[in-house]
């Protein structure tokens, strides 16, 4: 009896299958190339995201807590006005002297951020004599290397762009809020109008046009240092910042590897 499938035929089929599998990556590249011709995602003025890498750093010593950054951010990005929604905000840390007779270096820590510092800070109720030291800390998205928010998103709506920004695609976001819980820095919120997660975009619409983020633009004391790691200028502010300061990250024990560096920060800051 003639076998239903000859050896020659089976080997031929296997070889054909292997060839098809091997050609898949090339087919995919070719498809992507064709797609790029038809639908290219070019940002303003021929901006190429792969040619930049943006970063913001914070010098806590310079912040005077005027709150112009928080105000400018809300205006620039049409962030909902209610005091629950912020892309950037300022916290005031007041560290009290230890109570008399207590063997401690410092007493209670009082942190407040009335309306995110958006209207400036009212005078503190803590009497001056009780204050050991006090300072302002501006907060924003920490641009983590290992972003917990991106890992938590079930639909891949949050991603790292090639130019170092973490963005949300609002057409993908299903508003489940997992990313908001996942962010250890509290940098995200649910937009009450669109019901999608929102966060600092480093003013993506400004940096792609060669402007500075709104908060950097209005900061009167250069407490926010912003630059492009791939195109350092002469006397680059970021390089100078690193050279002259000892820098830290927030919550380093979480392993999120924030790219945003803070200078002159205190142990109490979370």
């Amino acid at each position: 009896m003639k076998p239903s499938c000859s050896r020659r035929r089976l080997l031929g089929l296997l070889a054909g299958g292997a060839g098809w599998l091997a050609s898949l990556p090339f087919a995919r590249t070719a498809k992507a190339a064709v797609k790029n011709v038809f639908a290219s995602a070019k940002t303003p003025d021929g901006y190429n995201p792969t040619k930049h890498h943006w970063l913001m750093c914070i010098d806590v010593d310079r912040c005077i807590g005027c709150g112009l950054c928080a105000e400018a951010c809300k205006a620039e990005n049409a962030v909902p006005q209610s005091s629950n929604y912020f892309r950037t905000w300022i916290e005031r840390y007041i560290i009290k002297k230890p109570a008399p007779g207590v063997a401690a270096l410092r007493g209670d820590v009082i942190v407040d951020s009335p309306n995110g510092g958006r209207n400036g800070f009212p005078p503190t109720l803590v009497p001056k004599a009780e204050i050991l030291k006090a300072f302002f800390v501006p907060k924003l998205c920490n641009l983590c290397e290992h972003s917990p928010c991106a890992q938590a998103c079930p639909v891949g709506a949050t991603f790292d762009t090639p130019d170092g920004v973490v963005l949300v695609d609002p057409t993908y976001c299903i508003g489940c809020g997992f990313c908001i819980q996942a962010c250890p820095y509290g940098c995200r919120f649910m937009n009450p109008d669109t019901h999608t997660a929102e966060k600092c975009t480093l003013c993506y619409h400004r940096i792609t046009r060669g402007l500075q983020p709104a908060c950097v633009e209005v900061c009167p004391t250069k407490a926010r240092i912003f630059g492009d790691l791939k195109n350092p200028t002469e006397k680059d502010p970021l390089q100078e910042f690193i050279r002259h300061n000892k820098v830290f990250t927030l919550k380093p024990h979480l392993g999120t590897e924030p790219r945003v560096l803070y200078a002159n920060i205190d142990k109490e800051v979370r």
């Binding site: 639908a39 290219s40 995602a41 303003p44 620039e76 762009t161 090639p162 963005l167 057409t171 633009e217």
Partner: peptide, 28 residues
């Protein structure tokens, strides 16, 4: 979507859409 995978495992056009806002602060 057409631009999916242009830069990574997401829609490349999302970058363009985020960048399409009009700046309010004109810059110094």
């Amino acid at each position: 979507p057409a631009t999916f995978g242009q830069y990574g495992h997401y829609r490349g056009a999302a970058l363009e859409e985020t960048a399409s806002r009009k700046p309010l602060f004109a810059g110094a």
